[in-house]
Design a protein around this nucleic acid. Sequence first.
DNA 1: ATGGAAGTGTAACAATTGTTACCGGAAATG
DNA 2: CATTTCCGGTAACAATTGTTACACTTCCAT
Lengths: 214, 214
Amino acid sequence: MFTQAADYLNKLSPIFEPALLAELETKTMIMEVKAGDTLINMGQTIRATPIMLKGVGKVSRINDDGQELLLYYVKEGESCALTFTCCMMAQSSVVRGSAEEDCTILAIPINLMDSWMAEYSSWKKYVMTTILNRFNEVIKTIDEVAFKKMDERLINYMKEKSKISGSSLINLTHQQIADELGTNRVVVSRLLKKLEIDKKLLLYRNQIKLLKDL
Amino acid sequence: MFTQAADYLNKLSPIFEPALLAELETKTMIMEVKAGDTLINMGQTIRATPIMLKGVGKVSRINDDGQELLLYYVKEGESCALTFTCCMMAQSSVVRGSAEEDCTILAIPINLMDSWMAEYSSWKKYVMTTILNRFNEVIKTIDEVAFKKMDERLINYMKEKSKISGSSLINLTHQQIADELGTNRVVVSRLLKKLEIDKKLLLYRNQIKLLKDL
DNA sequence: ATGGAAGTGTAACAATTGTTACCGGAAATG
DNA sequence: CATTTCCGGTAACAATTGTTACACTTCCAT
């Protein structure tokens, strides 16, 4: 168990300076989260900032009618910009964070984050890089939603999903895909069928196989 | 001219600690920008971080086809989160910043920003607050674009515009509105006409008068 | 095995938005 | 004053997306 923790922290050693790593080792907590679990819901106030050590997290926005929209994934070594800022400002979350796969997460108490900003330049850089990357991703999402049509959004979504999982097989129902894109199951089925006819992919129950020329 | 500069800085005194204000006074520059001028374009790297002292700025995203979409306004005392992060990471901008009205801007050299983060807690707080607010606004934009229909977006847009200018008169052509919403002039004309029939507003050439029950 | 739930395919239709085209009036320009 | 440009109204149509409904299959649980 302890060696595992050390292993995880080793992954962060290229990012953070030694003194900070030492603090991470003693002052933070490692948490295990199961796939599908919710880390934080909209409106909740967060108590600690997470760094993803293993697995993939998902950050999404849910509108008043309960409709969902995927914002971005949090991969290994990454964190969530919104948590940083929410933490530091003690604000409640405007998004939902959940575990896309089983996750191992490093939980950093709020008070540390704040002092580390002044103390460790590697931490400051990490925070700023995270914020910048997330801004870029959210703006990319805006591009998709504002300017792209559903067929292209669907394709990009599946490609991203495939990249995350490292497989050309996507294990999702049409309903789940529709939810993440903020649209309707029938629309997704329709577009997927068209893509299958165009030999871009193969459809199975609960599964989609992406072909090379997608 | 010097008294003016001092006046402007006085506006910031509730936000920043005295020592930081002193640094602001000696180490920054005040710039005047005309309405419509571009402050930064997509792809450009920024050289200084702006704080808006007077006037209103506009931050928008432009897609590959040249279509525009308004992200948010920068009002007095505010700054742009994207500039902070871009500055600190020396990244090029992914958005366009321009002057909505004539603006007076405080330009802060990049190198200062970075050290201030460690030095002044009021600065750190200002930066974090700005980032948080902008995230919220961008996510609000996502909500609009992803979940709302054009009529509601149009109404929200005009209300925001009216709030910014402090007037129920909006001096814009349908084309300009369409551009900022990322849609088509005919669509805007159509929806505006419907709103006029519903007695929500009055239409004139280059001008829209919002009525109370909009 | 069998009944029910879940997932998919599809049709039919509505609603929204985008596109093109053309007209007429208002403003600007000389 | 004449000409041109800009702005808005509107029709007609296309394309996209949303909605409802229903059939059929697969899977699961009792």
